[in-house]
Amino acid sequence: MAASTNLRRFPGFLTVTIICLFVLYAPLIVVAVYSFNASTSITNWGGISLAWYVDVFTGPEAPKFQQAALNSIIIAVCASIVATIVATLAAVAMTRAGRFRGKTLSFALINLPLMVPEVVTAVASLVFFSAIGFTTGLTTILIAHTVFCIPFAYLPISARMQSIPDMYEQAAMDLYATPREAFKLVLLPLMTPGVLSGFLLAFIISLDDFLITNFVKGAGIETLPTAIFGSVKQGIKPNIMAISTLMLVVSVVFVSLSWLIGRMGQEKT
């Protein structure tokens, strides 16, 4: 027995894991700490203060970043809702509709946004919108975001649906439920955790995007990442660190929620 536990251990692997976590967290922690710096210089430490958080909400750049944040949220909410609905329907087709022609092709299509490099998607979208004479703006960002959110919403939803046996729906249909009713009243409630984590995942992915947005946003319209990028190009200022820390907190809260919802769902079945 002792031998079998030893076989799971390799000298140094714990150290590498700690180094790994250190590298992952160090930059984020440093920025979070420096966002509370009272000094106007970003390098010298001048004591703890909330000045830069006040600056984010009331400072000269506040209206710009607030508009950008609002745009980001509108786009993320709309894109992830549409993507979640589309992905849910696709997941039902892939896990519940048996075999049909073009199934493998459809699976490849849903995952296409993950396979095409982001910069290529960005170029293709820009070229396409300009070729059909579509003015770039909020709508084009929304469309582009919906496309790449679909596979991210699809992953947790289809994983969840595969783990639910279809006996519940079979039972409902034995009791004369139509397929539509069986889906709405039986399957949908059962897979709510999957749909919710798919939605949250799509939401974060949409908020995260910089490159594609930067190509299709058009003049004058900014999302939070493009506004931050523009500002960082002129040097990292303390207010950027405060915004970054706020976004970091939002992401961590969302991912934790998604994780907890996923766990909750697992315990139920």
């Binding site: 896990t95 519940r96 509709a97 048996g98 296409l112 946004p113 293709a124 079979q170 069986a182």
Partner: peptide
């Protein structure tokens, strides 16, 4: 995906995916 409880509606359910990804990613590429 061997369950066939919604057999025959595969394409109907995949239609929105094909429209959105087909028009706004496949066509642009």
């Amino acid at each position: 995906g061997t369950s066939n409880i919604y057999k025959g509606s595969g394409w109907k359910l995949l239609f929105p995916s094909w429209v959105i990804i087909g028009i706004f990613l496949l066509a642009p590429v």
